[in-house]
Design a protein around this nucleic acid. Sequence first.
DNA 1: ATGAAAGCGCTAACAC
DNA 2: GTGTTAGCGCTTTCAT
Lengths: 324, 324
Amino acid sequence: MSKAKLGDVAKHAGVSPTTVSRALNNRGYMSDKTKERINKAMQELNYFPNEVARSLHGGKTNLVGLLFPNVTNPFYGEIVTEIENALGQRGYKSLLCNTYNNPKQEEQYLNMLLANQVDGIIVGSRTKPSNVYQKANLAVVAIDRIISAKVPIVRSDNYAGACLATQYLIDQKFKRIALFTGSSKEEIEKGDLRVEGYIDTTKKHNLPQTICHIDFEQEDMYQKQRVLQFLTQNPKTDAIFATGDVLAGIVQGCTQDLGLKIAIVGYDGSKVFQNLCTNISTIRQPIEDMAKLAVDLTLDAIAGNFQKENKEFVLPVSLIKRSI
Amino acid sequence: MSKAKLGDVAKHAGVSPTTVSRALNNRGYMSDKTKERINKAMQELNYFPNEVARSLHGGKTNLVGLLFPNVTNPFYGEIVTEIENALGQRGYKSLLCNTYNNPKQEEQYLNMLLANQVDGIIVGSRTKPSNVYQKANLAVVAIDRIISAKVPIVRSDNYAGACLATQYLIDQKFKRIALFTGSSKEEIEKGDLRVEGYIDTTKKHNLPQTICHIDFEQEDMYQKQRVLQFLTQNPKTDAIFATGDVLAGIVQGCTQDLGLKIAIVGYDGSKVFQNLCTNISTIRQPIEDMAKLAVDLTLDAIAGNFQKENKEFVLPVSLIKRSI
DNA sequence: ATGAAAGCGCTAACAC
DNA sequence: GTGTTAGCGCTTTCAT
């Protein structure tokens, strides 16, 4: 037996499709008797409305696209989880898209999302701005990323966090603090607050700056080699600020391999990281708050309540200290 | 200017909607001139087809629901990532659903997915079987979970993996090997291959069995307390097999807090775990293979090519040895 | 309080 | 080769 549809329910209950629709949506008035009969018919036929048909008619899908590099990284895993939760609670569904920070991939996904009539998009992917975002008069919110003047940004206080991390290492009397980042030199020149926080803080204390760029697009093995190379070429390094926890973990593995005792501070502070790496200090982003805020902004925009001035929402970070 | 639709393109090109549709789908014949005119019109109007309308007509959404506890856990993060990749490459979209292993939540999601006319569902959530799966004549594939006789299962060789882990500890002369698991006693009684592997292997060597149940639904803090309690109550424990890597990480944190030197072997072996916990051995599941197989099976089922006999696909595991 | 009919955007017989 | 028409399942004026 195939799926029952609204018309079937109508026949079964001896009313018109219109009336069934009204019962379904609690719109308009109808006698309790009719209502009951319809409910009974729906039960008996095991009816549930076809959301695709509803979407086509209403021009609203209750679908939100989630564009993130991938949920392998615990930070993205946690923020995507929280976003999905918040969306689900408010009747929205999450279409997951792994962009791997690949601009071409991201653009394809974007077109796919538009074709699927999503009501909104939350972007945490870190590729260069695409003009596709402009075209659609769509609810778009970015996580820690500049897309265009019109797209609100939710992020943690990258600058303060980087200062906090660096200062923490300085307070422990470390003198040769290196920075490990996934950003390239070109990206940093365009502005990278975590890097700036590190530079400003080390400068303030007349300490040297040493930056190691790790290309996340490369294989794990290659990344490790790069780290090992850096560490052997800069043997006096006594502390490291890594701008992401996964990178911090990789770096720690390398220092262990080399038998080095180097203090490391990461960035992100996802719950899983805190559980898995109990000996790496980190800057914790308020992931849940960021997720909820991003969802609020998205749904506001969908409802047509656009934010006026405040385009950037910067949430506070905190330092999680760990021994070593 | 609002979104262009097929009819607009038709008018603009001076043809009928049918012809535009044909051009779009490369169906039937048409003069190159017409084709060109239509393509030009589509460009000028910035047209792209509305997938919702297509879905309504064709009865096919190219949507697959992903039911997993949540992608916070690196194992789920990685398998969901790989599934999304494999689906995306074959033109399918992923609807992410965090069930938190909550049966009620899972059932709600299931109904949502049915209402949204998904073509298939991949379930990695570990709650008790729901009868909703039966009703729908839908493509369903389970990851390491029994749903019903008809639903194929993709899993790693849990029994062999548990034996491998336990044997590895025994080979290192450990005598008091405890098992940490997220399963309750009741769940274990119904059959839990990782637990069975541990029990059989320790018994074979005349070693004692000690099982500590950790309730993942509880807060992190509570879980840790439970672990600490167990460790202080069982001070002679010299090695631990944890049936999941996140749990292994938590256990390791506790052993460090207590100043204990206990060997730990985990289970899962996600890439992120390997990077973050360089001193915990683990049993690696072939996550990418599992994801690809699950997607193949799902798409086969969608295409109507149901598997005949083989309902359970057991993939091999491997041991990743780490110092300590 | 209920029904008839048109339409959301696209596709597919079936004609010409 | 191309157009006409009906219909996917639902909602919504507009009547009654």
